[in-house]
Design a protein around this nucleic acid. Sequence first.
RNA 1: GCGGGAGUAGCUCAGUUGGAUAGAGCAAGCGUUUCCUAAACGCUAGGUCAUGGGUUCGAGUCCCAUCUCUCGCGCCA
Length: 594
Amino acid sequence: MEQIAFSPAQVIDMALRQVAAGLENFGAEFDPQVRPADPRHGDFQANGVLPWAKQARKNPRQLGQELIDALATSNELNPLTVQWELAGPGFINFRLTPEFLLRWLETYRSDNALREGAGSSDQGRTVMVDYSSPNTAKEMHVGHIRSTVIGEAVARLLEFCGAKVIRDNHIGDWGTQFGMLIWAVKHHQTDLTKIEEVAELEALYRQGSAHYKSSPEAEDECRMELVKLQQGDPENQQIWQQITDASWRSFQQIYDSLDVHFDEVLGESFYRDKVDRIYAELIELNLAQEDQGALVVFHPEHQRFKTQPFLVRKKDGASNYASTDLATILYRVEHFKADELLYVVGLPQSDHFEQLFLTVQKWFAAKNYPVPEMRHLGFGTVLGEDGKAIRTRSGESVKLRDLLNEAIERARATVDAKQEERPEGERLSDEERAEVARVVGLGAIRYADLSQNRTSDYKFSWEQMLSLEGNTAPYLLYAVARLHSIFRRAGYTPGDASAEQGASAPEADEEIALARKLLAFPAVIEQTRSDLRPHFLCTYLFDLAGVFSTFYNACRVIVDEPDVRARRLMLASRTLTVLETGLHLLGLETLERM
RNA sequence: GCGGGAGUAGCUCAGUUGGAUAGAGCAAGCGUUUCCUAAACGCUAGGUCAUGGGUUCGAGUCCCAUCUCUCGCGCCA
């Protein structure tokens, strides 16, 4: 039996390339541009003939005809699994047959099967994802949610595609604020080991900062504490360590609730003894130069960076985030053998990363170090209802913990309201309601963030993200819960092969539409992976849930005809699997009841 | 001043890198439940894709200009 490929689009793409390579009017460099198509036209379309014809100054219809004729005689594609035709100005439309849809659905029946199917694309690749990155002694706020949530989704996606992923939290645990903090700790006899909330550290910081500003002598006192810390004074070192530990205990609570776990937490302090080598190599290679007392890198070939400096060492000799970021990249390549480095950091820092990557490329090339693929996964700002960066009424940044708690509370209110509408016997227990509220509330925040294009700002709206309608977590979670309910009632376990025994190929319009949507999953994963924009996956899951609802409304699943019932159970089961797999990739938990 | 990002339906947003008649959701209006979760589904209406030029078989997407908003631009990260 012929093997069923995970990605039909890829098979079509390869077949077209193969055929084109042997044709005089095409060639090996022909890119067929296979894309998912509007369902009216087919499952996939190849657009590549048009630009090719344009460049060759030939008639696109004629070239297209030549290509599909050759495809027909080549045996690259089996006409029993896929049919094609030339359309419009020169598109080639491909339509998968119902028999193939059935066989694909029989093959890719579980999360594991999907994982295996997708897992070849990044096999053997080591990717480090740098995300979340809070500063110690400071509360995590809304600004961290995007980095944390997007970073986690990206990490999961890459794992799904077969990469070895190293999650690294590059915390801000070194800097001038520690002078003030240490001073405050010493003058308030604080027991840092008892601290569980960063808020207490923030209070200390405010005291230290107030003192710092009170007089020139006070300023010197704080600065002295910083100098002692930097010189390795044991007492200050210990206080610093305790501040870091206390901060981490607090962060950990949030990470636990979000199910985010890091493989490494190598903050700025980790690299402080690794920056001297950076200075030395950059100077040796003539990449860096002294300028106004500081060490800077210019990029003469770059419009802006020929004059806008990349400042790698301050004039007082101290390192900054440019130097530690450079040291970090070297470490990630030398120690972790990373092939790809991803930075989930806000878009305002794009200049920094552009300069950073440019510098690394030149430096590594000159030193013959392997140059990793580096990408800044920038994201937009979270805006309040007024369209400005989100703040509390008093003008402070919104604490992440408060945000998460409020989401759960609001979800709980909705859960309770919905329960009232149900008959007595079908209501959830108090415990179940709490669980539903937790999953829906946290899911809503996460999904609202991920379903938005990463690079654009987005408006934070409780009403919208917790809405039961539209492209939201509650809608999708409900679709999942409903599917579970179907199987409970029918007395089957989702994915149970015996329930699907003897399934016939999809027939009704709604069945075919659902099957085709399910088969679009591989292409969506590819697209999401290549751009690392989770909202592609979100849009797909929302569409899938909608197509399923239409199917579910039109086609009764539990019917008498065995083959029809088997195929509908199979469609329902696959929808459930794809929805759950997708939501889990995004970092959402799913529910069996709600 | 230089540079980045953005401007698509009343609102919130998609639009797979130049492809087929620009799509969703909310809000508005109409309809569907003796039937597997109505937290659902179907239908209607809603557009000069900021503005003006240009490139070509073809532009929301590319190039130029203009307007508006926003964010960066030497010792914070």
